[in-house]
């Protein structure tokens, strides 16, 4: 847990010193999503009312899909001539960066600017998504062998979850470095499965060796689980998701942290239930794994309730 805290605080510190994300052109003072299907823009100086209110002058698209233009239904300029409210036919996906292009607003020059969620909010939403909305166990159905194998006792569950989180963060960070600086430059991304599984085994081995020397007490309580970690789909899934979504380092870090935390959460919840199940009267045919599967199904139904959750 201590290592986790240190890692987390290091990330928070790094975020504080991040430069302001996506500086718009100076003419645009600020641009942000407003409501479900709107973008609010503030200009530095008042603009021509008639020109600015023409919806056809605005071209808006998501940064990674420049071919799909989003239709602007109305553009309303405030009475001071500086605040503009764009309304769209369909709700915007505020997790994506949007590019707004204005034709001939000020002196006939085309204007380009980007609208994005605050970067910290974006990272936080990745973390929360991996933690509960897309919980790796209950909504992505990964790592079930280990999940059912080690969720019999709360103590084991906690140890397993912490070891998983550490290994996941370490292996995902390494995989990101390797993927970005070796596989992509040499066009070797078809080797990603081989490389990622190798890196995961390497990380597990490294954590094992380091923990044994640095903190023998921790090793004695967690070391047994390390062997189980190597061939596990949760761990290998994080780098694969990272490469398919083209995440940058901080996003990868947050995804790994969320995935590990989500696994810890799932293990803890499950072990709490299974400790009580031992005292309950269960039909003999359902004893053991069958009832555990049914409980997991109920958890999965409960976790469906998190879908659509948006904090920022």
């Amino acid at each position: 847990m201590k290592i986790l805290k240190i890692l987390l605080s290091a990330v928070l510190l790094a975020l504080l010193f991040l430069p302001a994300w996506l500086q718009a052109t100076e003419f645009i003072e600020s641009a942000a999503f407003s409501g479900k299907n709107g973008i609010a823009v503030a200009f530095a100086v008042p603009v021509d009312k008639a020109a600015a209110a023409e919806a056809s002058r605005y071209t808006v698209f998501e940064e990674n899909d420049p071919d799909i233009k989003l239709s602007v239904t109305s553009a309303a300029l405030g009475s001071d001539g500086r605040s503009l409210q764009l309304l769209f036919a369909e709700p915007l996906n505020s997790t994506k960066t949007h590019v707004v292009r204005v034709q001939g607003l000020e002196g006939g020059v085309d204007l380009n600017f980007k609208v994005a969620k605050p970067y910290f909010g974006h990272l936080f939403s990745i973390l929360v998504a991996a933690l509960v909305i897309n919980n790796f166990v209950f909504t992505k159905y990964l790592g079930l062998c280990v999940f059912f194998g080690t969720s019999k006792r709360k103590k084991t569950a906690k140890g397993m979850g912490v070891v998983f989180t550490i290994v996941m963060v370490a292996s995902a960070s390494m995989s990101w470095l390797f993927y970005r600086f070796t596989l992509i430059p040499f066009h070797l991304d078809f080797l990603q499965i081989v490389v990622f599984i190798g890196l995961v085994s390497l990380t597990v081995q490294a954590v094992d060796t380091i923990l044994r020397k640095v903190n023998p007490v921790l090793f004695n309580s967690f070391g047994v689980y390390l062997v189980l970690v190597i061939a596990n789909c949760v761990i290998i899934a994080v780098p694969l998701i990272m490469s398919s979504l083209n995440y940058n380092f901080l996003e990868t870090f947050m995804l790994a942290l969320g995935a590990g935390g989500g696994f810890l959460l799932a293990l803890y919840l499950m072990s709490s239930v299974r400790e009580r199940l031992e005292l309950a009267k269960i039909p003999p045919t359902f004893k053991g794994l069958p009832i555990a599967f049914i409980v997991a199904g109920q958890f999965a139904l409960a976790f469906l309730g998190f879908s659509g959750l948006q904090l920022f």
């Binding site: 209950f138 909504t139 159905y141 359902f286 794994l289 069958p290 009832i291 555990a292 599967f293 049914i294 997991a296 199904g297 999965a300 139904l301 976790f303 469906l304």
Partner: peptide, 11 residues
């Protein structure tokens, strides 16, 4: 529904 997989396998 995806979550029904748990129930089917359990049953």
């Amino acid at each position: 529904l995806p979550s029904a997989g748990f129930f089917v396998v359990g049953l």
